[in-house]
Simulated assay, not measured.
Amino acid sequence: MSENCRRLETIMVQGSREKEDIKGAISTPIYQSATFKHHGLNESTGYDYSRSENPTREELENTIAKLEGGKAGFAFSTGMAAIDAVIRLFIPKDHIIVSEDLYGGTYRLFEEIYRRYGIETTYVDTTDIKKVEESIKKNTKAIFIETPSNPMMRITDISKITSLAKAFKILTIVDNTFLSPYFQRPLLLGADIVIHSGTKFLGGHNDTLAGIIVANKFIEEIKFMQVSTGAVLSPFDSWLILRGIKTLAIRLEKQQKNAIKISKWLSECKRVKKVYYPGLKAHKGYDISVKQTTGFGSMISFEVNEREIIEKSLKKFQTIYFAESLGGVESLITYPYIQTHASIPEDIRNRIGIKDTLLRLSVGIENVKDLIEDLDRSLNL
Score class of each variant (00 low, 15 high):
M1L: 09
E3C: 08
E3P: 08
E3A: 03
R6S: 13
L8Q: 04
T28N: 11
T28S: 13
K37P: 05
G40A: 09
E43T: 08
S44T: 11
Y47A: 03
D48H: 06
D48P: 00
S52K: 04
E61M: 08
N62F: 12
G69R: 07
T78G: 09
A82S: 11
I91P: 00
D94F: 07
D101I: 08
L109H: 10
L109P: 00
Y114S: 00
Y114F: 14
E120S: 03
T122R: 06
T122A: 14
D125S: 02
T126L: 14
T126P: 00
T127N: 08
E146N: 10
N150H: 14
D157C: 02
I158S: 09
S159G: 08
L164Y: 12
A167P: 09
F168Q: 15
T172D: 12
L179E: 06
Y182M: 14
F183D: 11
Q184H: 15
D192P: 13
I193F: 15
V194R: 02
F201C: 03
G203P: 09
G211A: 14
I212G: 10
V214F: 07
S234L: 07
S238T: 12
I241T: 04
I245H: 05
T247E: 13
Q255P: 03
A259M: 04
I260F: 12
K261V: 01
K274Y: 03
Y276A: 01
Y276S: 06
K281W: 08
Y286F: 09
I288E: 10
T293E: 02
I300H: 05
V304I: 15
S325D: 15
L326C: 06
G327E: 10
G328L: 05
G328D: 09
E330G: 13
Y337K: 04
Q339C: 05
Q339I: 01
P345N: 05
I348P: 00
D356F: 01
K369Y: 13
